[in-house]
Simulated scan of single mutants.
Amino acid sequence: MNDRTDAVPAHWHADTQDAGRLVRAVYECISGPAGAARDWARFRYLQHPRALSLRTVVEADGSTRAAVFDVDSYIADVEAFFTGNDFHEVETDQRIERFGQIAHIWSKYEARPTPDSPTVLKRGANSIQLCHEQGRWWVFCTVWDNEREGLRFDLF
Rank of each mutant, 00 (worst) to 15 (best):
R4P: 05
W138P: 02
T5V: 10
K108W: 14
T64W: 01
R42L: 07
A60D: 15
H132C: 02
E79Q: 15
Q47R: 09
L22Q: 01
I102L: 11
C131R: 15
D145T: 12
R4V: 03
D70C: 04
C131G: 14
A14C: 09
E133Q: 08
R44N: 01
P33Y: 14
K122W: 13
L151W: 11
V71L: 07
D15Q: 05
L22R: 01
Q94K: 04
F153P: 02
V57P: 04
L155Q: 14
R123Q: 12
V68A: 10
S31Y: 04
A51W: 03
A14H: 12
D116E: 14
Q47D: 12
Q17D: 08
H104R: 14
H132P: 01
S117N: 06
R44G: 03
I128S: 02
L54T: 15
Q129H: 10
E79L: 13
I75E: 00
A80T: 15
A60M: 09
R152Q: 12
F140D: 06
S73K: 03
W137I: 00
A19E: 02
T16P: 07
L46E: 04
C29Q: 04
V8G: 02
A67V: 02
A19S: 07
F43G: 04
P115A: 14
T119Q: 12
N85T: 12
L54M: 15
S63T: 14
L54P: 07
A111D: 08
P118T: 11
T5W: 07
S107V: 08
F82H: 15
A25Q: 05
G150H: 08
H132E: 04
T114L: 11
V120H: 06
E147C: 09
C141T: 13
P118R: 05
T114H: 01
W138M: 01
D72H: 01
G20Q: 09
W137D: 08
D70T: 09
K108C: 13
W106Q: 13
V23K: 06
G135W: 01
A41P: 05
F43H: 07
T83V: 10
M1E: 09
H88Q: 00
V143Y: 08
P115S: 11
R38A: 10
N126C: 06
D93R: 15
L52N: 13
R21W: 00
A51N: 04
G84E: 12
R44L: 02
E28S: 14
Q101P: 10
C131E: 15
D61P: 08
K108V: 11
I102Q: 13
G124R: 04
R123Y: 02
